[in-house]
Design a binder for these strands. Structure first.
Length: 492
RNA sequence: CGGGAAGUAGCGCAGUCCGGUAGCGUACCUGGUUUGGGACCAGGUGGUCGCAGGUUCGAAUCCUGUCUUCCCGACCA
């Protein structure tokens, strides 16, 4: 065994780290809290990015790029936003290094090169963008502005985890400006739906759409909408957020427009983002003790073909036959890899591609050529099937669709089985301590109660589901009157 | 940031207590035999022991500092 994996039951955290590192998605770096995203992991991100980018464009958005640095005076303009992020900001104070006179071969910060004004490395870009929008917007004719940027941001987290919480991460952030509150709210909801569509239909990760409580709301937002996913260890993961920012940033940066009646109005704003964190969620939703399990629609490699041969002569015959298959797969838009390298034997390759989460493996040898068939193995169910060479491309296409839907259904079943109603505090705690998952419980709607529950149960309100039915009840903690249940969970 | 553990060859580890100039497995290289679930035999390559100081004739080993990672907690728009 070349690569031993920790099992989920042994140590869930270690299992996750093993998969990310041994599955070659990412690795630790020399920089605290920052990871190296390796080619295989980046290919996965590129696939995700490309699909999202297309969805953003289909909903009328354009890409742009704003600076990495935010002058402190701009950063602090929107008070709540600044306060929310202040304690995790990297700050640039100098612009030059010089040779250290007391330490040969070493450099030191030039004390003469202190910046007049500190630059904040963006933890999010509302400030720099709204400062820019001020110059873009004069009239209602300039609205809406529908802009997205693909970027990196830095949040100086105390405790980091590969993909789930890193000091630097990749994401996209949409920042839109609108003439009316209704339009901005519609945009906020539209993008939430885009995220839910992407995460469910491409990543095969079921999510619950909802709205955050005041405590969990984005700093500077009027309302934060979110999609919440459930991991295999029963903990929840916020997979994406879409914020209705009201006029907070417009007021902070004095962004006004003239309406049809030549009346000056503040602009309405939204922002929305998803990050490389989604990759962490993907790993923890589908993968198993053998390694990663990637959904076909975003897998860097959808099909791997492993030849089984004795001697160069057989290999040449297989190479020729497989070249036809590869051509046919590629013509059908299937991402296929033919691994005919001779330094690893078939068994080794089988294990390796299982670790990498490749949805379909095809093994083909002399025996198969004779029978005009191949051995096809599904990563999701670990089933092996003998499949006719005739019409193989169509078979594979259909199977990729089936695997995609099987992964989603499996995850949804798990998620649905882990939404539990609790009507007493004891039951509430018991669920959190045993099966985990979402606990649907009444809450009196106050921030104080939410804080108290967080303190006592280490669970937070993940969201108030959008389609939540109203029902009379009593708060799980205080017993005060409540009109609806909300979803609690322990979360990443 | 608090508590705990760790850092020695690409990876996984032993050696550290009791100082004497580094070893095992795997990977890698060469040759051969192999190839339908992580092959075998033989011969090799590769490490200033995380980094920086200090003690000493001599440091992976003792001392000080520092960096990084993991686990638990606090924090986490």
């Amino acid at each position: 065994m070349a690569k031993e994996l920790t099992s989920r039951a042994q140590d869930y955290s270690q299992w996750y780290n093993d998969l990310v590192i041994k599955g070659e998605l990412a690795d630790y770096s020399a920089v605290r809290g920052c990871m190296v995203i390796k080619p295989y992991g980046y290919a996965l991100w590129e696939n995700m990015r490309d699909v999202l980018d297309r969805m953003f464009k289909e909903t009328g958005h354009q890409n742009a790029y704003f600076p990495l640095f935010v002058p402190k005076s701009l950063f602090e303009a929107e008070e709540k936003n600044a306060e929310g992020f202040a304690k995790e900001c990297a700050v640039v104070t100098h612009y030059r290094l010089i040779a250290d006179p007391n330490n040969k071969g070493k450099l030191m910060v030039d004390p003469e090169a202190k910046l007049e004004e500190e630059l904040i490395v963006r933890p999010t870009s509302e400030a720099i963008i709204w400062n820019t929008y001020k110059t873009w917007i004069q009239s209602y004719r300039d609205l809406p502005i529908l802009v997205n940027q693909w970027a990196n941001v830095v949040r100086w987290e105390m405790r980091t985890r590969l993909f789930l919480r890193t000091a630097e991460f990749l994401w996209q952030e949409g920042h839109t400006a609108h003439a009316t509150a209704q339009e901005a709210i519609a945009e906020t909801k539209q993008m939430l739906n885009v995220y839910a569509d992407f995460v469910e239909n491409w990543m095969a990760v079921p999510v619950i759409k909802g709205i955050k409580s005041v405590n969990e709301r984005f700093a500077g937002a009027e309302d934060t909408y979110c999609i919440e996913a459930l991991m295999q260890d029963g903990k929840a993961l916020q997979a994406g957020t879409s914020h209705f920012l009201g006029q907070n940033f417009a007021k902070a940066f004095d962004v006004k427009f003239s309406d049809q009646n030549n009346k000056q109005e503040y602009v309405w704003a939204t922002s929305w983002g998803v990050s490389t964190r989604l990759i962490g969620g993907l790993v923890m939703t589908h993968s198993d003790d053998e390694g990663l399990v990637l959904p076909p629609r975003i897998a860097p490699i959808q099909v791997v073909i492993v030849p089984i041969f004795k001697g160069e002569e057989q290999k040449a015959i297989l190479d020729e036959k497989v070249a036809e298959l590869v051509k046919s797969f590629k013509a059908a838009g299937i991402r296929v890899k033919y691994d005919n390298s001779d330094h690893a034997r078939p068994g080794w390759k089988f294990a390796e591609y299982e670790l990498k989460g490749v949805p379909i493996r095809i093994a083909i040898g002399a025996r198969d050529l004779e029978n005009k068939q191949v051995e096809l193995a599904r990563r999701d169910t670990k089933e092996k099937l003998a499949v006719a060479m005739e019409g193989l491309t169509e078979t594979v296409e259909a199977l990729l669709v089936e695997i995609q839907s099987n992964l989603f259904e499996r995850a949804r079943k798990y998620r649905d089985e882990h939404i539990t109603k609790a009507d007493s505090w004891d039951h509430f705690l018991k669920i959190l301590d045993t099966e985990g998952g979402f606990v649907s419980a009444h809450w009196d709607g106050t921030a104080e109660t939410e804080d108290k529950i967080k303190e006592l149960a280490k669970a937070t309100i993940r969201c108030i589901p959008l389609d939540n039915p109203l029902e009379q009840g009593k708060c799980i903690l205080t017993g005060n009157a409540s009109t609806q249940r909300v979803l609690f969970a322990r979360a990443y």
